[in-house]
Amino acid sequence: MNYSRDSLPPINLIPLKDKTDNREERVRKNRLIKIATPTDIRFVKVLEFLRSNNLSVNSCKLYERELKRFLGWTQLSYHELRPRHLALYKEYLRDEVQTDTGKPLSKSSINAGISALKSFFKWMCNTYPDIMAANPTLGVKLEKIPLPPAQSLTAEQMERVWSALELLGETKQRDTALVHILSHGLRAGEIVELNVGSFDGKLLFLPDTKTNEPRLVPLRKESREVLTEYLLSREELGEELNSLTPLMISHHASYKGERLSYHGIYFAVEKIGELAGIEELHPHSFRHTYATDLLMLGIDPSHARKLTGHTSEKAFRRYTLRSEQEAAIAAYYRAIGEEPEKES
């Protein structure tokens, strides 16, 4: 059957608007932007930045998350960004982004996002000056946050930790050596990377640290002996050790004999905390304690920072505040002829 052009029925154009469009509109209205991996060429530079910097596992995840969030917020190319755009983005983080529980971001979370951008664009300016002639984050200030106090363990809590180690089974010797290393101020991520060759019988050598500077950590006599005994016990069990063998190994059924992971260290410390009756004990608790103890011993703050690997004097200030406070209290009691009570 033949149809002429005039006999064809009229064509009605139906706008395509499905549930997905409605949902996206609701998302925009609720000011919630999902952090998804950008598909444009800009993200290639982010990946290059993450791979070219000596970042810890946690820092790498944080930087990637925050940079994805930023690229999801703007479609501007890097060379088009100006300080005003970064100022608007900070307002977006402060006023519009919410946590999973629907609360505004904390000042610390806002600073984490801005710090990630500052690091990335500083790298971009140094690596690709032809793309970025000026750093758009230079004028963006971080939120002011009161310096948190050092969360050091008391002498009594440390005694409970040592006692708890005696209650462990298969992991007792490994975890005892682990706590001795942690009690010398090492970060969990730094311990993961340690090899047998990192220990010369007296010092620990950290070639790759958070600050990108190698560090030597002197160990106490008892700690040296504990670590040496731990390594000897592994050899007695038939393990062949060399300079590249992991210093700390896992006892998990699926990873037995492999390098102890970041999460493995946290799990081990959490278990010790439960046995010791110390809530929320984590690897960094020992780092806080070590830094505080160094200053309480009267070690020069600049030397203490070298031992702990702190580059920021401001970040280290929390420990000097504690030692200064203790010194002031001791001076007061000396002045009035009383002996200060010892902290339990």
Rank of each mutant, 00 (worst) to 15 (best):
V140E: 12
E159K: 14
R82Y: 03
I131D: 02
W73R: 11
R82K: 15
K68C: 15
M124I: 08
D175F: 06
A164M: 04
E156C: 01
V140T: 13
Q157A: 04
R160G: 01
G113T: 02
T127Y: 02
A155D: 14
E64W: 01
E96L: 02
K118Q: 15
S115R: 15
P146L: 03
I145K: 09
E166H: 11
Y89Q: 05
T171N: 02
A177M: 09
D100A: 13
S152K: 12
T101Y: 09
K144Q: 11
P149I: 06
T74S: 15
R94Y: 05
P104F: 08
F121T: 06
A116N: 04
S77R: 13
T171H: 00
A150Q: 05
M132N: 05
Q173T: 12
K107T: 01
L142F: 12
L93N: 01
S119V: 03
P148E: 09
N126A: 14
K172T: 07
P83D: 10
E170L: 13
R94S: 12
K144Y: 06
E143G: 02
P149R: 14
W73G: 11
A155Q: 14
L67C: 10
A134I: 14
E159Y: 03
A134K: 12
E64I: 01
R160H: 10
A155E: 15
I114F: 03
Y78R: 01
S163M: 10
E170I: 10
W162K: 12
L86Q: 01
T74D: 01
S163Q: 15
D130G: 04
A177N: 03
S119C: 10
W162D: 14
I145R: 02
G113R: 06
L167S: 12
S106A: 13
E96Y: 11
E143W: 08
V97S: 07
A134S: 11
A116D: 04
G72P: 01
A116T: 07
L88S: 14
L153M: 13
F120H: 08
P83V: 14
P136E: 08
A164C: 02
A134N: 09
A177Q: 05
S109C: 13
A155C: 04
R84G: 01
L88P: 01
A116S: 15
T154W: 02
Y92C: 02
M158T: 12
L165T: 02
L168R: 14
L86E: 03
I131E: 07
C125F: 01
M124T: 06
L117M: 12
L67A: 05
